[in-house]
Design a protein around this nucleic acid. Structure first.
Ligand SMILES: [Mn+2]
Ligand SMILES: [Mn+2]
Ligand SMILES: [Zn+2]
Ligand SMILES: [Zn+2]
Lengths: 157, 157
DNA sequence: ACCTTTTTGATAGTGATATTCATATCTTAC
DNA sequence: GTAAGATATGAATATCACTATCAAAAAGGT
């Protein structure tokens, strides 16, 4: 799998076009708009949320929700976006042009903080090996109360 | 939250009855059967899978799938069962009478291996603190290929 | 520009889970 | 033990996020 860390938008776009060509797929306004929207708003998007934003900023496209789902799947399959599953709160997508990281999530307000920890990654690898597994992926989400929500709670009491 | 580690079934049942009473809820055959089925088959159950098992072993109850969902939610809310979300493969439940652990999952055959790692737990706590969060929970799942599926793949090639 | 293929948006369909509601069952007070 | 008042139940229906279908539109190789 290619590494898209710190890629500029032009590089990302070129990469995307290459993937499309390699798979006999077509480069469309909808696909490009979704990629650029993800790039220019580097936050964690719900499918629905991304759909609404594209619809609002590019009404002339008259984009359909199905296309958003399709394009997100396509981008994820090819490693250009990654997703995190938040159980009840649904699935969120982000562009994959930054180093691997995991997420710290506030259960009160939904705020998401990204972090990376070399040491944990090594331990995960080690655990897999000890159990005879070849590690291919992992999911790590920490849940808690962010400092702002802690304050709010104190004030409320 | 109470700690249900290594509780016997009688203790667990007593705990459950206490929770029900405290919330003005009733002790029913369906609820008891679901708890005991989880206790006596300490594996990771899909809602559907648990429903089928109870239906088969206790046909006289004529249990409905809705009751299984309702009871699992009730048990989870009160910490007597815990669940893991496996994205596409759905949600699995297990009884919470053993120490905290995380899961190593084979992407090929769905096998689940449980593990615990003190060191990672400490690092998670530390990461939360560094970001001003009070850590309340975490989710860690490692995905890979188990040794059997590795062998199968070799033979297949 | 033409022709073929892929993509699209609207719509309908899906599967897991939630809700509704009339009936059954449980709990408490006698 | 029974009656009264409560909650729980199963069957049916609804919901929600997502996927499949399909006719029309757009892409892109020539
Ligand atoms: Mn992120
Ligand atoms: Mn487990
Ligand atoms: Zn918060
Ligand atoms: Zn396997």
């Amino acid at each position: 799998m290619k590494n898209f860390e710190t890629m500029s938008y032009d590089e990302l776009l070129k990469e995307f076009k290459g993937i499309l060509k390699a798979n006999a797929l077509k480069f469309t306004k909808q696909r490009e708009t979704i990629l650029s929207t993800l790039y220019n708003n580097p936050k964690h998007f719900t499918s629905e949320c991304l759909y609404l934003l594209v619809k609002q900023k590019h009404p002339e496209l008259n984009i359909g929700i199905a296309t958003v789902y399709r394009t997100l799947s396509l981008l994820e399959e090819n490693g250009l976006v990654s997703s995190i599953s938040l159980g009840a709160q649904g699935k969120k997508f982000e562009i994959a042009n930054k180093p691997h990281h995991d997420h710290l999530i506030c259960s009160e307000c939904g705020k998401i903080v990204e972090f990376e920890n070399e040491q944990i990654e090594r331990l995960q690898q080690q655990i897999a090996e000890e159990n005879g597994f070849i590690l291919t992926d992992h999911l790590m989400q920490l849940y808690g109360i962010c400092s702002e929500c802690q304050k709010k709670k104190e004030d409320g009491d």
